[in-house]
Amino acid sequence: MTSGFQASSAGPACTSCAIYNSANLAKLGVETGDYDYVAAVAGNPNTGKSTVFNALTGLRQHVGNWPGKTVARAEGGFTYRGLGYKLVDLPGTYSLLSTSNDEEIARDFLLFGRPDVTIAVVDSTRLERNLNLVLQILQITDRVVVALNLMDESQRHGITIDVRHLGRELGVPVVPMAARKGEGLPELLEAVEQVATRQPATSVRRVKQRNAALERAVATLSDKLGQAFPGLPNTRWVALRLLEGDPSTEQAVRDGTLGDLGRGAAEAGSARPTGTAAR
């Protein structure tokens, strides 16, 4: 299967290449006991999210053409270049802002599960509508890899995407893929490793509020949150939730769980990777 979309330098994807064959990627199925990093898979419904999850873990989870197919979190694992990753499949959602059960699960996991990497799976045939979720994820975490999936389909539909430019705009790695065919998988693994093992990017896209008064309020509250919870990585997002009066965020502020988040993030940034990688 030849495909011209590999904008990145790795050349044509080949499922028999050593790069992600048995040596580097031993598919572990559900054995996730000893892992070095936690990776979450998020995305809109119908983006091939579960296909990406399955391609990485070898777990044969049913891939439904439906929203919310995976209501409970599916978990799996894989190893890549000697490092173990626990992979968590989040429910497919259009947004993280509303109050549906699925969205709450996804949002809470990103916020409290503190994944080392979040793989945001995106349907390349409908980029604009998918970016809504990606931009929301970027407000919560900057450790993100965008898996630009279904590239074979968008190509068929005559859609061309400037992958490099998209990566610059978002400030995180963007990997073009056709997960069903296994194309782009080596590049995805590479990007996941990069984000997991290195300091997070500093140029991540953060949506500015168009309403000036709101933007000022967010900035003010975000500062205060930063002082109260040093190390909290997503003060702007928390500030927005507080302004909206979101009960679970208010609770996290009141009982101090938000503080653990800050400490956790600080630890994850320094100690964790080196501490366990030697295993």
Binding site: S95, L97, L127, E128, R129, L131, N132, V134, L135, Q136, H157, G158, I159, T160, I161, D162, V163, H165, L166, E169, L170, R205, V207, K208, Q209, R210, N211, A213, L214, A217, L240, L243, E244
Partner: peptide, 28 residues
């Protein structure tokens, strides 16, 4: 102090950003 419809503004800002990004990166 915020306008009554500020919550809409949150979603609108995100979509406006998404539209801007996709108009720069996608061609058909």
């Amino acid at each position: 102090d915020l306008p009554a419809d500020f919550q809409d503004g949150i979603v609108e800002s995100i979509y406006a950003d998404a539209a801007a990004i996709s108009s720069h990166t996608v061609s058909r």
